[in-house]
Design a binder for these strands. Structure first.
Length: 255
DNA sequence: ATGCCTCAGCTCCTGAGA
């Protein structure tokens, strides 16, 4: 099975690109983030016509997540149970026995800000939710836009960006705490080219200069780890006209 | 230069993203 995650930065704008990409990359599950549309505007018919089932959790202007899958997702849960949140950031469902959590982690803006504090609380709540889900679903994939880099290798300018948002020790602590639940970063299971990123700033020719960050991740449970065949970041869509600032990440798991 | 793009919306500027 192939699993992919893609922050599309407005599904209304990016729908044709998503459909094109799915046609060339017929993955089994695609997690989308930053839909930036309300539930009634979700283009369910377009995905149905493309042979995909959809579950979604939209929001006006900001956030919004979805799971697009070849076979319908079961046991769908929206956001983090027990964590009061007015933003639509998480959608969970089971596809072919694999529990899939698609998540749009908070940006956090800047260390010390209210939004950073919210990010920390959200990360603590997410970890509890993932731990609960792992207890009943040994086959689990946690994927999405994490808005956190693991270490310097994920950052185009580690010195210049040290301790800035996405690169702080506090954020990385939470990322390691997710790993400590028994999850593995599928990207690092394989030899990867240096300076491999998943996001590039729209400004200042960020993509052309490969000034990016690796902040979109696919973490897999310990039962899935030995079954992971590949993990690739597809820079193709970033070369489109009017691209998302993020590229899709794709993992192939023999399950 | 708290900017440089891009997107949404109470749209001709502002907030947010990362």
């Amino acid at each position: 099975m192939k699993f992919a995650t893609w922050n599309v930065n407005s599904l209304s704008v990016r729908l044709p690109q998503v459909l094109d990409w799915l046609q060339s990359n017929p993955v089994d599950v695609l997690a989308l983030q930053e839909l930036k549309l309300t539930d009634e505007k979700f283009p369910v018919d377009a995905f149905t016509a493309a042979g995909y089932s959809s579950v979604w959790f939209g929001q006006k202007t900001y956030n919004g997540v979805a799971l697009i899958s070849r076979t319908p997702a079961a046991g769908v849960v929206k956001n983090i149970p027990g964590f009061d949140d007015d933003m639509s950031r998480v959608i969970t469902g089971t596809v072919h026995g694999v529990r899939v959590i698609g998540a749009y982690f908070p940006n956090g803006q800047a260390p010390g800000s209210d939004k950073f504090e919210y990010k920390m609380e959200w990360l603590t709540a997410l970890r509890r939710w993932v731990k609960e889900e792992l207890a009943t679903h040994p086959h689990l994939v946690l994927m999405g836009d994490y808005n956190i880099t693991f270490d310097d290798a994920d950052v185009w300018d580690p010195e210049g960006l040290r301790d800035t948002i996405h690169c702080t020790e506090e954020e990385r602590y939470h990322l390691r705490a997710l790993i400590a639940l028994g999850l593995t970063d599928s990207h690092r299971l394989f030899e990867q080219p240096p300076r491999t990123f998943s996001w590039w700033d729209y400004r200042d020719f960020g993509f052309r200069r490969n000034r990016g960050l690796r902040i979109d991740h696919i973490l897999v449970s310990s039962a899935l780890k030995p079954l992971v065949q590949s993990c690739e970041i597809d820079k193709g869509p970033r070369k489109n006209e009017r691209p998302s600032d993020h590229a899709p990440v794709v993992v192939d798991i023999a399950v």
